[in-house]
Write a protein that binds this DNA or RNA. Structure first.
Lengths: 139, 139
DNA sequence: CTATATGCAAATAGTTTGCCTGTTA
DNA sequence: TAACAGGCAAACTATTTGCATATAG
């Protein structure tokens, strides 16, 4: 369930980006918060349909774009795989377990983030940094 | 031009992965070495066609896969954009300049790479690490 | 009330596949 | 001369678009 606090954050954040709060966007956000397993668009779609049978796939794409656009959700891309979505707003990296396909959040301390920024030549301003690991996760 | 040394490296590396040296693979590799601007498949295709008019798009995909598979080339993915290819074998990150679309290699010192590895919980074995920046490059 | 969002279906982009022929080791 | 690779066209998947209707602010 989305709490009132989450809901007002959602409405607020959408409004900050000039976007409207719609029931579809609320549901898509709720789906991401409910099960933090980095679902693909199709997975979000089927979970959202369980809550609102009339929602369409195109709308799920639109809602996810809106949530990414207003900064509440991050889009996770591993190679050419379908995009996955993550409502974790803390700085973090992702680890893709090749054995299971699962994606795990990896904490990214500010100190390490600063080191990464320092790799850039002067004048380079990174708007976003994406750090992705692939391999075997602990059993 | 691909030097003899590069050519034997190519043949060698392909053989190491159980793959054959073909003129198409040589040309695709040469295209990547000639202009290190992280071309997309379509760009590689049109440059390769200039050298071998009969080469097909599917073959360019196959050749790039083979070169990535034998470790001579890296595949670079930014968000959902088409894959780009890079013959730089040193450890490095990529910076995507949002203004121009250009991708620049960023050196990734072993010391920083080690720090990134250390972010992982015990038992996590990263086969690959991808670090991508997006933003404004220096003018 | 009016701009914005939804739903549906069709379109697109990138990539993969199947099948038959050509080439490499 | 096998096994592997290339060429071509069709298939597929993820995502986007156009347009008519519905809804938020």
């Amino acid at each position: 369930m989305v709490s009132d606090t989450q809901n007002s954050t959602l409405t607020q954040k959408l409004a900050d980006s000039g976007l409207r709060a719609t029931s579809q966007r609320e549901i898509v956000y709720q789906v991401l918060l409910d099960q933090r397993d980095h679902p693909s668009v199709d997975e979000v779609f089927s979970r959202a349909k369980a809550l609102m049978p009339t929602i369409s796939l195109a709308t799920v794409y639109n809602c996810l774009d809106a949530l990414v656009g207003c900064g509440l959700v991050k889009q996770v891309n591993f190679e050419r795989d379908a995009s996955r979505y993550c409502p974790n707003l803390q700085d973090h990296a992702h680890f893709h377990d090749d054995a299971t396909g699962r994606i795990v959040d990896i904490d990214l301390p500010a100190e390490v983030l600063a080191k990464l920024r320092n790799l850039l030549p002067p004048g380079y301003e990174p708007g976003s940094i994406e750090l992705n690991f692939r391999g075997r996760a602990a059993p």
